[in-house]
């Protein structure tokens, strides 16, 4: 089988306590006084693995362990300090739906806006429009401004647009960062999971970051447990999840560097 993602010895550092939210004056002052020492935080430390076509990988670990950074590195949003990242095929990265929703516009306008942010042409969105509206079940509110929507309705809208755009772009690799936590009701959540199953079972290579252990156990063929930027354990999801849960009940075991 062909390799979809190949990571070789990738490392990523962040300069903490540097640059962030500083004005030019502050920066000049700290430059002259030379007080602030750069603190490097190693987020990924010599990670390498391969993901084959059709595999579904679950990534688990504590907050700040480098899960999201890993996905961003694969997606090409962050550049690595060393090592190489190779991906093969069309890639889509999602961290929750709802990027680009504008509450001051109507639902109809928002569908077009979010669609184009997710890289669909206006024509493609027009073709999918009917399906999106039906899936969301919000047909009566098409011309209502979104700021009047309840949170649940907003989630429904976000998911519906997101999922149909995803379906249209038909990626080979799908990177999901905690997208399943929706505020929709049970009926809608089931609908969403069913749609996502189509991807997971349809041959798309899925890399899933989640704190929902049931999801990992149910859908993943392999699990990675990451801590402090290193792969602690890799293998059968059931076993990895079991070990991970065991470690969380024993809080003094690991600390953030």
């Amino acid at each position: 089988m062909e390799d979809r993602i190949i990571l070789e010895n990738i490392s990523k550092k962040f300069y903490m306590g540097y640059t962030k939210d500083k004005t030019a004056l502050e920066r000049a002052v700290s430059l002259f006084l030379n007080r602030e020492s750069r603190k490097d935080l190693v987020v990924l430390n010599n990670v390498s693995f391969k993901i084959k076509s059709g595999e579904n990988i679950g990534i688990i670990g504590r907050n700040g362990s480098g899960k999201s950074t890993l996905l961003r590195v694969i997606a090409g949003i962050y550049i690595v300090d060393s090592g190489s990242v190779k991906t093969n095929g069309k890639l889509v990265y999602l961290t929750g739906f709802g990027q680009g929703l504008n509450p001051k516009l109507t639902m109809r306008e928002n569908i077009f806006l979010i669609g184009s942010i997710l890289d669909l042409s206006q024509r493609d969105i027009r073709l999918k429009f009917e399906d999106i509206v039906n899936f969301s079940g919000l047909k009566d509110f098409l011309d209502t401004k979104v700021y009047k929507f309840s949170l649940g309705m907003i989630n429904r809208l976000n998911f519906s647009v997101g999922i149909y755009c995803l379906k249209h772009s038909n990626p080979d690799i799908l990177l999901l960062d905690e997208v399943f936590r929706s505020g929709g009701d049970l009926e809608f959540q089931n609908k969403v999971i069913k749609k996502m199953e189509d991807f997971i079972k349809g041959g798309t290579t899925v890399v899933l970051v989640s704190h929902d252990m049931d999801l990992i156990k149910r859908y993943c063929t392999r699990a990675l447990w990451i801590d402090c930027g290193k792969i602690l354990m890799e293998g059968n999801p059931l076993e990895v999840v079991k070990e991970y849960i065991k470690s969380t009940t024993n809080p003094n075991s690991i600390k953030i560097s």
């Binding site: 961003r72 090409g76 949003i77 890639l91 990265y93 961290t95 990027q99 680009g100 942010i117 890289d119």
Partner: peptide
């Protein structure tokens, strides 16, 4: 920044 951090846009 919300977009830029969360998607390859």
């Amino acid at each position: 920044s919300g977009f830029i951090k969360s998607m390859n846009i």
